[in-house]
């Protein structure tokens, strides 16, 4: 029995490893997308947290450049001041909100009207509807960016690679009219013009105003908008894992104590 039990355990372990191996090849591995540049983000790993200054700069890039075409319908200005994000001060949040003109109404005359934004307002979208967005962008619809960092394989690495991936097309490649070559975009033909260039966004800190920094910062910002509770999750996770680990040891000892003398040749 003990011999076959050992065999059974070994075989079972092999099966468990096999299952783990299958799980380790996630379904999306099949999509042979372009190679992405992998960065060392402050938020990756089990203890990863966002870099506040980076998120603030990222918001600056988003607001100055991306927001001209891309909506961010899931975000409110108040989120910019909430813990675990860029954590702008309350006053800054009010100022940032009030810079936007929000459509409200109808008023007592039945008309819609514009007013300065409040922290509880959603980010104002650049176009009223998808049709208008298409019309203004040569037929292409700039996607909403709220959860973009979770909606693409590679997440922030993809966004960074895309923003830094513009370049000269290979000589043998046929481009459709109005498309631009991008090495990170699936199919390498993207409708979006190269959005970033050195110096186009002012930074309030002394971070060099380079395309590379803009791409990094806005990718980090988009990761935060996609996963605003990441810091809370990582912090709680540490506590829960330590608790469960100690609990597991205690349960193991309890099991051994209760089963003492019941397992083996000891009647």
């Amino acid at each position: 029995m003990s011999f076959s039990m050992t065999r059974m355990r070994a075989a079972g372990l092999a099966a468990a490893l096999g299952l783990a191996a299958v799980l380790a090849v996630p379904a999306q591995a099949a999509e042979h997308g372009p190679e992405l540049k992998e960065l060392d983000w402050s938020f990756s790993g089990p203890f990863g947290m966002y870099d506040r200054a980076q998120l603030q700069r990222g918001y600056q890039v988003y607001k100055t450049i991306c927001a001209n075409c891309h909506s961010m319908n899931l975000m409110s200005y108040r989120n910019l001041g909430e813990p675990g994000g860029p954590e702008f001060s309350e006053g800054d949040v009010k100022t940032l909100a009030s810079q936007a003109q929000v459509t409200d109404g109808p008023n007592d005359q039945g008309d819609m009207f514009k007013r300065p934004g409040r922290p509880s307002d959603r980010f104002v979208a650049p176009f009223a509807n998808p049709q208008m967005a298409r019309a203004a962008n040569g037929g292409a619809l700039p996607p909403d960016l709220s959860v973009m960092a979770k909606a693409r394989e590679g997440g922030p690495d993809y966004i960074y690679s895309l923003l830094t991936g513009y370049g000269e097309k290979p000589d043998d490649m046929q481009m459709a009219p109005g498309m631009h070559y991008n090495e990170a975009f699936p199919g390498h033909q993207i409708a979006m013009l190269p959005p970033l260039a050195d110096g186009v966004v002012p930074y309030t800190d002394d971070t060099p105003k380079t395309l590379d920094n803009y791409a990094k910062d806005v990718a980090a910002f988009l990761m935060w908008t996609a996963e605003p509770k990441l810091e809370e999750r990582h912090k709680l996770g540490t506590r829960v894992m330590v608790f469960l680990f100690v609990f597991a040891i205690i349960m193991y000892l309890a099991k051994k104590a209760v089963w003492k003398g019941k397992h083996h040749k000891a009647i």
Partner: peptide
């Protein structure tokens, strides 16, 4: 051990 385990649970 059992009381500790019960406490954790």
């Amino acid at each position: 051990i059992l009381i500790t385990a019960g406490g954790f649970a």
